Amino acid sequence: MSLIDRDCLRRLLESDEPDATLVFVHGDCVVLPGDRIDDVHRGLVIVGRDELLALLSGVDVTDRRLDDLAHRLDNVVRDLGA
């Protein structure tokens, strides 16, 4: 079972927050504005929207591409000990 999936990434991309960040909190991916990320959440940050957009630069944002990135980020979450 994936911890990070395509829907998590879509929520991050579609967030109205200019500094939206994907954070893993209590077993779920949550999009938080950058100014709400405190010391408690800092170690749980997966990716910021700007970083995600950089990873998607020059490619079409397809379900397949989001699935691939979600799989890579899911590995990051697991490495963090989730």
Results as ranks from 00 to 15, higher is better:
5 D>Y: 03
31 V>C: 10
34 G>S: 11
29 C>R: 05
48 G>R: 15
39 D>E: 15
14 E>T: 09
49 R>F: 09
69 L>E: 02
26 H>S: 14
77 V>C: 01
22 L>F: 07
56 L>H: 06
15 S>G: 09
71 H>P: 00
18 P>Y: 06
23 V>M: 12
63 D>K: 06
24 F>N: 03
23 V>E: 06
45 V>K: 03
32 L>Y: 12
41 H>L: 13
66 L>T: 07
75 N>Q: 11
6 R>C: 10
17 E>T: 04
41 H>A: 14
5 D>V: 03
53 L>V: 13
71 H>A: 12
11 R>S: 14
45 V>P: 02
12 L>N: 08
33 P>V: 10
56 L>C: 08
67 D>V: 10
59 V>E: 14
65 R>T: 11
27 G>W: 09
13 L>F: 12
47 V>D: 05
39 D>A: 13
9 L>E: 13
46 I>S: 06
59 V>F: 02
28 D>W: 03
22 L>K: 02
45 V>T: 08
47 V>S: 11
49 R>K: 15
60 D>G: 11
47 V>C: 13
71 H>I: 00
29 C>H: 03
5 D>C: 02
42 R>I: 13
17 E>C: 03
51 E>M: 09
80 L>T: 00
66 L>E: 10
3 L>E: 07
62 T>W: 05
13 L>P: 07
17 E>H: 14
81 G>S: 01
76 V>C: 01
12 L>G: 08
66 L>V: 04
82 A>E: 04
29 C>E: 06
57 S>C: 06
39 D>G: 15
42 R>L: 10
27 G>Q: 12
77 V>A: 08
25 V>H: 09
12 L>W: 06
35 D>I: 00
38 D>W: 10
12 L>I: 09
58 G>K: 11
59 V>G: 03
14 E>A: 11
74 D>Y: 01
60 D>R: 11
25 V>G: 00
79 D>R: 04
45 V>W: 04
53 L>M: 14
51 E>V: 06
70 A>S: 10
66 L>Y: 07
43 G>D: 15
27 G>K: 03
61 V>P: 02
12 L>S: 09
60 D>E: 14
59 V>S: 11
76 V>F: 04
34 G>F: 08
69 L>P: 04
36 R>P: 01
30 V>C: 12
79 D>I: 00
2 S>A: 13
74 D>N: 11
71 H>Y: 04
23 V>C: 12
43 G>T: 08
56 L>Y: 03
42 R>P: 00
81 G>H: 02
52 L>Y: 05
10 R>Q: 15
80 L>E: 00
12 L>V: 12
41 H>N: 12
14 E>K: 09
34 G>A: 13
79 D>E: 05
48 G>M: 07
75 N>T: 01
40 V>D: 14
54 A>F: 11
46 I>Y: 08
75 N>L: 05
35 D>H: 10
78 R>H: 01
55 L>R: 12
40 V>K: 10
71 H>K: 03
50 D>K: 14
64 R>Y: 08
43 G>I: 01
33 P>F: 10
49 R>S: 10
31 V>I: 13
20 A>S: 12
29 C>N: 06
71 H>M: 00
18 P>D: 12
77 V>R: 02
70 A>N: 02
29 C>F: 04
75 N>F: 00
24 F>L: 04
7 D>M: 09
